[in-house]
Design a binder for these strands. Structure first.
Ligand SMILES: [Mn+2]
Ligand SMILES: [Mn+2]
Ligand SMILES: [Zn+2]
Ligand SMILES: [Zn+2]
Lengths: 122, 122
DNA sequence: AACTTTAATGCAACTTAGTCGCATTAAATA
DNA sequence: TATTTAATGCGACTAAGTTGCATTAAAGTT
């Protein structure tokens, strides 16, 4: 995936701040929050949130809130659920397709909370 | 359901603050946040949150976070999903049983976000 | 390459849901 | 009624996220 085109196609200026955020998200295997993303990137907190909000508006990124009251971000992908463990707070992307047949609704985000495989068998 | 017994069975003191919170939740048809619950009840914010946390520990109440970054509370009930509309912010309890077979996980909370029936057809 | 326009940035101040310490009060038990 | 212990109110605090504003940098134009 080409970050440069991703940004320009949406009529956003290509800044180093934006490159840094998207580069990190591209190489992540799970959603990340500001605290995790800020390490090694240089921009101000306000800049980060303004950019991430713009990414969400332009459908480049999506997010959800976790147990710790922080927002977690990932590059937009086909809809899949996120599992948040109430014991160890780990966040997992769930690959298995879960189909809810809720007629009339359109679903954009699925969050499941509970005990993950590891914590469940303790 | 008898609130008095609900509280005493969990070895909690029966205070008017606790009665008021639980009475309101008992008569609600959807989860409520502090702002909604505080109307007509007299206790301090700190007291409210300390009580609601205790109720959660004792499995009398469960909660989740909505779009507006507030926690929403309801009396503990058989597991069911909550749908949060990203357009109108309405929160609905989903009656339809959604069964997905995520082996190994135990699921305690299901949150779906998207467009509700009404907002979806606009 | 310099010039212009416009959007992006940094900084500091702010907002707000929720938390905490501590002195006071009320519930349970004897 | 007296004693114990948990619950309450109050004010100060925390921390994620937001906003206003002056400055800077990206993209387009000459
Ligand atoms: Mn994911
Ligand atoms: Mn419900
Ligand atoms: Zn876990
Ligand atoms: Zn709606």
């Amino acid at each position: 995936m080409d970050i440069e085109n991703l940004v320009k196609r949406k009529n956003l200026k290509l800044t180093t701040a934006r490159m840094e955020i998207l580069e990190k998200l591209l190489h992540a295997s799970r959603p990340l929050c500001y605290d995790e993303l800020k390490n090694g990137i240089s921009m101000d907190k306000a800049t980060f949130y303004r950019n991430i909000t713009k990414f969400e508006d332009k459908m480049i990124v999506n997010s959800f809130e976790s147990n710790d009251k922080k927002r977690y971000f990932e590059l937009n992908q086909p809809l899949h659920a996120h599992f948040i463990c109430v014991i160890c707070d780990k966040i997992e992307c769930i690959k298995e397709p879960l189909d809810f047949n809720l007629k009339g609704y359109s679903i954009e985000n699925i969050i499941l909370k509970g005990k993950c495989k590891k914590c469940n068998q303790i």
